[in-house]
Amino acid sequence: MSEAKDLIKKMCDLQNSTEEIQKEMAGWSGVVQYKLDGEEFYVEYKADGTCEFKEGVHPSPTFAIVASPDFWAAVLKGQEDAVSGFMMGKYKIEGNIMEAQRLAGIVKKFQGKFNL
């Protein structure tokens, strides 16, 4: 398992066990598919503020992140900026790019409060 996949799973576990994060996430639902150099998995975000980490490919994700595991781990740890990385072509977004902006907000919430 790549460090990026491990961090994404950890973020989902933290979200499910932390009422503060659930309150911040409540009201948004969607599926984020990750394609990290052969690793394919997704996170289902639910309107109640919880999430589920699942292996494989979702049939209709809200959007997909296509990146190298090393780059995405750096984004999750705050060493790379997701927006500038996208603009510079360091990774791709497939699907609803507007909803993908929500992910940047999610990542920043974790970076500010939890040591990933």
Score class of each variant (00 low, 15 high):
residue 92 K to F: 02
residue 6 D to K: 13
residue 79 Q to W: 02
residue 46 K to C: 03
residue 66 V to C: 14
residue 54 K to R: 14
residue 67 A to L: 01
residue 5 K to W: 07
residue 62 T to P: 11
residue 36 L to M: 05
residue 41 F to Y: 11
residue 85 G to P: 08
residue 57 V to W: 04
residue 77 K to P: 09
residue 87 M to K: 07
residue 7 L to S: 04
residue 78 G to P: 05
residue 72 W to Q: 13
residue 20 E to H: 08
residue 28 W to E: 06
residue 67 A to Q: 12
residue 70 D to I: 05
residue 13 D to M: 01
residue 27 G to I: 03
residue 79 Q to A: 12
residue 90 K to A: 07
residue 70 D to V: 08
residue 95 G to T: 02
residue 37 D to Q: 09
residue 36 L to C: 03
residue 38 G to N: 02
residue 86 F to N: 07
residue 95 G to H: 11
residue 50 T to P: 03
residue 71 F to M: 10
residue 10 K to G: 00
residue 95 G to P: 08
residue 66 V to F: 01
residue 64 A to M: 12
residue 69 P to Q: 08
residue 93 I to G: 12
residue 80 E to Y: 10
residue 11 M to Y: 15
residue 24 E to A: 11
residue 80 E to M: 14
residue 86 F to P: 05
residue 66 V to W: 01
residue 17 S to Q: 08
residue 28 W to T: 06
residue 24 E to N: 09
residue 73 A to W: 14
residue 4 A to P: 06
residue 97 I to Q: 13
residue 92 K to I: 10
residue 44 E to D: 10
residue 96 N to C: 11
residue 47 A to R: 07
residue 47 A to F: 04
residue 65 I to S: 08
residue 62 T to E: 07
residue 37 D to S: 12
residue 53 F to H: 04
residue 77 K to E: 15
residue 19 E to M: 14
residue 18 T to G: 05
